[in-house]
Amino acid sequence: MAAGGDHGSPDSYRSPLASRYASPEMCFVFSDRYKFRTWRQLWLWLAEAEQTLGLPITDEQIQEMKSNLENIDFKMAAEEEKRLRHDVMAHVHTFGHCCPKAAGIIHLGATSCYVGDNTDLIILRNALDLLLPKLARVISRLADFAKERASLPTLGFTHFQPAQLTTVGKRCCLWIQDLCMDLQNLKRVRDDLRFRGVKGTTGTQASFLQLFEGDDHKVEQLDKMVTEKAGFKRAFIITGQTYTRKVDIEVLSVLASLGASVHKICTDIRLLANLKEMEEPFEKQQIGSSAMPYKRNPMRSERCCSLARHLMTLVMDPLQTASVQWFERTLDDSANRRICLAEAFLTADTILNTLQNISEGLVVYPKVIERRIRQELPFMATENIIMAMVKAGGSRQDCHEKIRVLSQQAASVVKQEGGDNDLIERIQVDAYFSPIHSQLDHLLDPSSFTGRASQQVQRFLEEEVYPLLKPYESVMKVKAELCL
């Protein structure tokens, strides 16, 4: 049975990233139509530049190519590739079939990587351009969430054990800070992308030097003109047959890092959902379990974690691919890159769409948070109580021993009897502590235990987050809708 299948058929496997999760716009960027249309555009740009620099290419040939950029006979191309065992030459023939007058000058002087690699770089750039505003929107939604809850005390956790208090907004800023680093890295790697350009079979530009009869300047002009037509500021000066596969490492490393950030955020949300302090959106008709109707599973956060793990592992592909590119190139890269580049971007696209949807509907339960604080705060307040007693004339050592005994009794009630923490009640009825009984409410005010959390939130948002989001103001209103 021949390899390949009808990918629109229910009898043929289709990647869930495309069929179930990723956005239509990201799927289109990695589609065959987008790819092969870009090949034709690159052939047109090459012909236009070659004509401008004096090669015998007519206006009629150029116009014929322009008129057929979208006229792609995919069936013919597939048949040609089956016959020739070469995808680029299959599309040269297919393009030439609908451009008979231009057929002889299509791909003039070029090698397969002229269309293959340059198209990949265009796709990487455009895919990054799709991700950047999506990530900015996630940051914006979380920034709104953090600002609104900047002063809401909550129990902090280290080692997932109760620690000092923080605020809900401050905790959210930990998430935002990681995503801001990801946004900066995505922008950097996007701006650092260079075009492969017009380089020939081993990167020496020998074929173009021959076409222009040894004119170095025209060869350099050709490279520059096509690079500018493709919208790049610069091209690699040095290439082998391909652009260095280190570029793929750079791009997928940034995406993998984004995956790590999203995994951490969504894990926190899942843990908070278990504590009943916070939940992701839950639709009115949504079913959490087929057997347990009360369940409210954090399905979206779980999906993000599941896909983020996949995204983090994909960076190993370009690392290994770059390491086995012998001399000017081997074909070890080809099949692998067809999979890992598309999957990385479709996965990143999915987790950003999902995280935006989550961040637009996060639900906080202040009463649950308050109750958990009441359970733990008495123990945390013991040092403040000791200091207040010393100020009232008591002995630190005597007070410490009193607190120690009462704390152990209260802990026994919590752990052995399943009761509430009654340390404060014990202190309130103990005559030894009568000098500070009137101060206990103040000493137990949760806001006095959150330090500068709310001020940190305000400063972080104003100095770091809002300036970073400013270039994306025009796209901030787009909502994230999930079908599944």
Rank of each mutant, 00 (worst) to 15 (best):
G5C: 10
H7N: 14
H7A: 10
P10M: 15
D11N: 13
R14M: 15
R20F: 06
E25S: 15
R33K: 12
F36I: 15
L42V: 12
L46R: 00
A47I: 05
T52M: 10
E60Q: 11
M65A: 00
K66G: 11
S67D: 13
N68H: 10
N71Q: 12
I72T: 09
D73G: 07
A77L: 15
A77D: 09
E79Y: 14
E81V: 01
E81D: 07
D87Q: 02
D87L: 04
H93P: 00
F95Q: 05
I105P: 08
H107N: 06
L108M: 11
G109I: 01
G109S: 03
T111G: 04
Y114M: 03
N126S: 13
R137A: 15
S140V: 15
R141A: 15
F157E: 03
H159M: 01
A163R: 00
T166H: 06
R171A: 00
C172S: 09
C180W: 02
D182H: 03
L183I: 11
L186F: 12
D192M: 08
F195K: 00
V198N: 09
Q205H: 07
Q205I: 03
F208T: 03
L209E: 13
L211P: 06
D216M: 10
D216N: 12
K224Q: 09
A235C: 13
G240L: 04
E250I: 06
L252E: 03
S253Y: 08
H263G: 08
C266G: 12
L271G: 05
E277N: 01
K284M: 14
K295C: 04
N297L: 06
C305H: 05
C305R: 04
L311Y: 00
L314E: 05
P318N: 05
T321M: 09
S323P: 05
W326T: 05
L331I: 11
S334Y: 04
A335R: 04
R337A: 04
E343T: 15
D349K: 04
N353D: 12
N353C: 13
G361D: 15
V363W: 03
V364R: 03
K367M: 08
F379S: 04
N384D: 06
V390W: 03
R396C: 02
D398W: 07
C399Q: 04
E401M: 13
A410M: 10
V413K: 15
V414G: 04
F433A: 05
H437G: 07
S438Y: 09
H442G: 11
L443M: 10
S447D: 12
F449G: 03
S454A: 12
Q455L: 10
R459P: 07
E462A: 14
P467M: 08
P467Q: 08
L468S: 15
P471V: 15
M476V: 15
K477T: 11
C483T: 11
L484H: 15
